[in-house]
Amino acid sequence: MPFDPTALDTAFKSLAAYDWAADTAPFQMIDAAVIAAAADKALRADLEKRFGALLADGTSRAAKEYVCRKLMMIGTAASVPALAAFLGDTDNSHMARFALERIPGPEAGAALNKALGTVSDALKIGMMSSLASRRDLACVPVLTTLLKGPPLLAIPAANALGTIHSTEAIAALAAADPFAAEGVGEAVVNARLACAESLLAAGKRADALAIYQGLAKAAAGKPDAKAIELAATRGILACADAVAAAS
């Protein structure tokens, strides 16, 4: 459908009244507008303003979801406050993240970080996932604290630290117990292995080797840690391969 600017008002009026059972054809013009906005800053700003107003207007969950999908594509810092307002809302938190996770810039990261400190434990897991996907360094201190807490949050914290794999994240994981109960140890090991792979890929062989050797040493002689020993040994060999390839 080609974009027709004169049809936008009508399309947004339809979207404001939308719920899952309603006809979507009247507002599909908005899809075309979102595509056109990539090359039109004024249109983009106009759309963001309209979307923000809809989020604030008590529209249906279905309409909010549609808006978040579009802001995922074109949202900027200007849309962050309207989206962030839903991060603590059980029904809409995920879709707010759906947009915020993909919006570049510090504002979206700051909103997710702020929510990480305030939302329910169940929603914190989502914040960690999105912050990790963004490789947001600012969340590492909070993740480090969560890593020491109950498994519900320690496991996603370990996963996120492994994805972020900054120097501070690696240090936090190094201080965690690879044999911690209830799945935490498994997540810590996996995260450490992920960090080592990233270091090796970045040419930091000695740092990667230190992680692999640390895991191998921790697992040595433990009959239920053979998989860890195997993965660490495989990593050590990969480091040796990297040396051979470089020489």
């Binding site: 074109i74 993909r102 570049p104 169940a122 929603l123 897991i125 989502g126 996963n159 996120a160 994805t163």
Partner: peptide, 19 residues
């Protein structure tokens, strides 16, 4: 093309994630 890079992935509904 930051617009295209937004489409490399999508946020997963909690508690699901990939790492």
């Amino acid at each position: 093309d930051e617009g295209a890079n937004r489409l490399l992935d999508r946020a997963r509904r909690e508690p699901w994630s990939i790492s």
